[in-house]
């Protein structure tokens, strides 16, 4: 009998809290508990969020670094290609055969003397 009373008291209290039949004091304490839980949740989120952001930025950085590495590699490959294309025997061969250019005779050369400011 005592047990059933206790059980019904408990049900009443819970019911009152959930269905608004409780006293004003109970409502205030319920609100406090809610605020407390919200605060804890927010704090946890604030604690975790920067870490997640850092990881996200980390992935982005790693990706950008990979891209940078690839671009640098491309640049170096292109530099090699340019250097190979600028081989002087190749250029001379093109000049002589395709463009039919010849070396000027000593008398055909005009030397241009420029002032120091033009060389700057």
């Amino acid at each position: 009998m005592r047990r059933s009373k206790t059980r019904s008291g408990w049900r009443e209290r819970i019911g009152a809290r959930f269905f608004g039949k409780a006293s004003t004091g109970s409502r205030v304490s319920l609100l406090k508990a809610g605020l407390c839980i919200t605060f804890i949740a927010c704090s946890a989120a604030a604690l975790v969020w920067p870490h997640l952001e850092m990881v996200k930025i980390g992935y982005r950085l790693a990706h950008l670094e990979r891209q940078r590495g690839k671009l640098l590699q491309d640049r170096r490959v292109l530099r090699i290609e340019v250097a190979a294309l600028r081989q002087l025997d190749r250029i001379e061969s093109i000049a002589r055969k395709k463009l039919e250019m010849v070396f000027p005779e000593p008398g055909q050369i005009v030397y241009v003397k420029v002032g120091p400011r033009s060389v700057e």
Binding site: P106, I109, V110, Y111, V112, K113, V114, G115, R117, S118
Partner: peptide, 26 residues
């Protein structure tokens, strides 16, 4: 030697040398 001197822009004696005014402003 001849090609090297020409590359180094060393004019020979009696070469035609044109003086060009400075093209860049100070």
């Amino acid at each position: 030697a001849w090609q090297a001197l020409r590359y180094m822009r060393v004019p020979p004696k009696g070469a035609r040398v044109l003086q060009v005014a400075d093209s860049r402003p100070r």
